[in-house]
Design a binder for these strands. Structure first.
Ligand SMILES: [Zn+2]
Ligand SMILES: [Zn+2]
Ligand SMILES: [Zn+2]
Ligand SMILES: [Zn+2]
Lengths: 147, 147
DNA sequence: ACAGGAATGAGATTCAGTCTCATTACACTG
DNA sequence: CAGTGTAATGAGACTGAATCTCATTCCTGT
């Protein structure tokens, strides 16, 4: 399957179109910004970035769109520290991952670890709750801040 | 050592006294409320609870006290979802633990798992950051919400 | 092209959390 | 035990992310 050829934005757009009627320009602008970005963005950063673009999008729309994308599992929240929530594309259903956060400079670095995931999977079965999600964040100091 | 006999509040009070000069009534009120509670509390819940008690404490003081307690590792933040930050006593340095959060009713259930911790410990060594802390939250639906 | 309903925008609003600074209370000294 | 210096506290203004409202605009199917 030529899935590699399809951008995340295009995929997300199709999923979005399949799950509701309209597909406005605001959605497209947000999708494309998210897809172009290497890192997780906050709603405010998205608003700022789009304000100066050819397709500004209102705050209310951004939050609505992000909610929708999250419900469809097209993006995921990244909670780093107590600061504002960030969002990043969930690409290709492939790599589930978590984050390292530098408490000095705020840098967010993704990582994945199969042993950790398997421990979580195993644990989820023994716990008094139907576990749907998990969040793992490692805090510390990144290389550049330690030097 | 008769450590069992000493309440967390009393322990915290000693640590606090050892690390600074004054030890006001506001601090005592917050310590005792935290100690008496089975679950993690938010700053707002603490403020509300104390407002109707015999020793109301101002919001600014509550946040100051919580910051101080956290720096001394007497309490720990519990970030569940995107909601407001909660705080819970760190008792006896003993059981490091994490939380299950029911996304329906908001219930928070503590758990600990040595395999998970060892996976984290191991992982922390292989990662491009000096890891100081970690947060793990499992989300899902608790038994009462599933029924 | 049209109608009906979904999507969007602008701004008011909420609310956790922070900041300021005047006042109070603690702990030590004499 | 009163006096003094300093830390702690309180009241409320302030900040900023996130939510809400509702009038307007724009899709989409017919
Ligand atoms: Zn750093
Ligand atoms: Zn995982
Ligand atoms: Zn529940
Ligand atoms: Zn742990």
């Amino acid at each position: 399957m030529a899935r590699e050829a399809e951008s995340w934005a295009a995929h997300a757009h199709r999923v979005l179109a399949a799950s509701r009627h309209h597909t406005g320009a605001a959605r497209r602008a947000v999708l494309e910004l998210l897809d172009s970005q290497p890192c997780a963005l906050s709603a405010v950063e998205i608003e700022d970035a789009l304000r100066t673009s050819e397709r500004p999008v209102a705050r209310a729309s951004i939050y609505r769109i992000l909610d929708e994308l999250e419900r469809l599992r097209l993006i995921q929240k990244v909670q780093v520290g107590q600061a504002m929530t960030r969002y990043e594309p969930v690409r290709g259903g492939d790599e589930h991952h978590h984050h390292l956060v530098c408490d000095s400079c705020g840098t967010v670095i993704p990582f994945s670890d199969s042993r950790l995931e398997s421990a979580i999977r195993d644990l989820s079965r023994r716990v008094p709750m139907r576990v749907a999600e998990h969040e793992i964040v490692l805090h510390g100091e990144c290389r550049s801040c330690t030097d």
